[in-house]
Design a protein around this nucleic acid. Structure first.
Lengths: 336, 336
DNA sequence: ATAATGAACTTAATCGATTAAGTTTTAGCA
DNA sequence: TGCTAAAACTTAATCGATTAAGTTCATTAT
């Protein structure tokens, strides 16, 4: 490994000067800087991240926290897209990514301890139980954090615009003539609550009566659950003409159940999903859904986190709401 | 941050003794070890990874390389499953994961340089262009590496059993009575070549004639491509009774095309996929496919890499072939 | 009694990079 | 020329942990 000492020897300056030259310190002659940079390039020098982290406390490493309890991890396309985007933006700015977990090997550490153990400069908290004391501890610590789809006090948060997403979908199906709209939602997280509230509010604004039996709790990303809920809706004396699914993957379960009962989509039943995963675009008919802008969310999260890390003085917490986009597919038709 | 010095002060031993006690050195009294461990726990001590990495060269960090060129990254379920599994096994053994990429920020480094920059103890190379000189350089360096679905000389490799996978599928559909079997494959990687060879071999063994127009090159994970190939197959004067798709996701494209042309699956056309992603199990009919054991592959990769890192003396390169499992769905029926 | 042995601990150097403080060199000006 | 100030460089301490080499002290052997 080429170290700063090798460069110092090779070009006849002290280690201090070499270090300063490579870091753009003001008290090194321009000519010297060039000579040292040239030398570093020739020898193939790259700084040792561990040494630098030890000395200055900064690691150029960003922690990413995807809760490991739920087990969903990166298999959700929404999260894998967010993750890829965080990674891409971080790398562009010279940061690496470390996954923050609990219980590394035999050492028992919580998220904050893991963060410190690796000297992470900050953490993006993406999918987690935000009431978990270990998460709260991290969020209240002095470590810069950015949360996704959740808001800690005085912290930066990136929020997907769930209110606008559901609102857009409701108005869209309303425009197609639907008045009997069912809403299957996922577990009651803060995101779910926003979607549900938005659904009710927009329906009210449009003068739509939503009977309570049209609002059902299911499970995110679980086609079995959405299949059962679909069956329940079909069995109602006065079934809906349009069903909202908690997400695109859940729609598959509904689609199967509808097909099994001989109900044609969209002629006899209209459907919409949520997320806009790749699958929704390759199904036929294409699923009408709302594509969350995961790419932008991830990039903003990384960008703002790095901003906080690099300019702590001028930093202020921000809340950014990222709009998605309604994808018009072929699963919504005018009701009879 | 609690350091070893704090513990030394708190319990009246030297830093050396504390370090040795915590690392299980033989020349510390049992009683002392206990006292120091107790003290460390009380103070909430955790070693500083950077300091340790700097001193001993070991970082307890494993690099993971998913090529960034192709852009597929972790959005493929196969790879995200492999990744999750690597991560889980690594964490169990006390290792963190770092993504190895090229061009971190403004520094231009190749994969090997990035690996050294972060002092990674080893690298799992998962999805990459194995002919890329930067990958080859890493594979030929002194850094412990494990490749997935590719084999470098004198290196450990984890291989999905593509030969057995395709063989099992062919024999399965043969058992159902199919003799006219088409094979749409992906880009001609080493994996594809194995699958193709296995397909031809098994067909020959079973005495099946495969006309050349039944073997088509498509694109992995691309429903549009598989849709086109499906159309081509249907337009043949003597179309097949069964179509093999390059992967489950590609099947969606085929499925749509078949439906569009009014061809019923499986009554008028049997189909099989490859991978066994979640989606294949929630479609109706369930897709008959071959589930690659990504979990085991990832775990073995991490396990063997760590073995090489921790016991370099007794280490020998290994090739492990991981069998998958045929998932019998409902997309294969007896042909007319 | 003295030396030898070994257990249990401490001292001090080290990993590679950074940086405050100190030193030398150069330049500027009367 | 001589003095001062600024520029350009070096020295040396430091981050936290590890470890070879050294020290102390009790125990055993001769």
């Amino acid at each position: 490994m080429v170290t700063i000492t090798d460069i110092a020897k090779a070009c006849g300056y002290s280690r201090a000067t070499v270090s300063k030259a490579l870091n753009g310190a003001p008290d090194v002659k321009k000519e010297t800087v060039e000579r040292i940079q040239e030398c570093a390039r020739k020898l193939g020098y790259h700084p040792n991240a561990a040494a630098r982290a030890l000395k200055v406390g900064r690691s150029y490493n960003i922690g990413v926290l995807f809760s490991d309890t739920s087990g969903v991890g990166l298999s959700h396309e929404y999260f894998s897209r967010i993750f890829e985007s965080i990674k891409k933006e971080a790398e562009k700015q010279g940061y690496d990514i470390t996954f923050i977990s609990q219980n590394l090997g035999t050492m028992s550490m919580d998220y904050l301890e893991h963060t410190r153990y690796r000297s992470c400069d900050g953490v993006v908290i993406a999918s987690a139980d935000f009431h978990d004391p270990a998460i709260v501890r991290l969020g209240e610590s002095d470590v810069p954090t950015v949360t996704l789809d959740y808001q800690f006090d005085s912290r930066t948060a990136i929020l997907s615009d769930n209110v606008q997403g559901v609102d857009a979908l409701v108005r869209y199906v309303y425009g197609k003539g639907h008045r009997r709209i069912a809403f299957i939602h996922g577990e009651l997280t803060s995101v779910t609550q926003k979607r549900l509230a938005s659904f009710k509010k927009t329906c009210m604004e449009l003068g739509i009566q939503v009977p309570p039996e049209y609002i059902l709790q299911g499970i995110y990303h679980d086609p079995k659950s959405s299949g059962l809920q679909t069956r329940a809706l079909l069995a109602l004396p006065d079934p809906p003409t349009c069903i909202f699914y908690p997400d695109d993957f859940s729609y598959i379960g509904g689609m199967n159940e509808l097909e099994r009962q001989g109900v044609q989509v969209p002629d006899q039943m209209s459907t919409v999903g949520y997320d806009g995963i790749h699958l929704s675009e390759v199904l036929r008919p294409r699923l009408t859904t709302y594509r969350q802008n995961a790419e932008r969310m991830g990039a903003e999260a990384a960008r703002l986190l790095i901003e906080e890390i690099e300019q702590p003085d001028t930093w202020l917490p921000q809340q950014i709401t990222v709009e998605g986009q309604l994808l018009e597919g072929g699963t919504v038709a005018e009701p009879d």
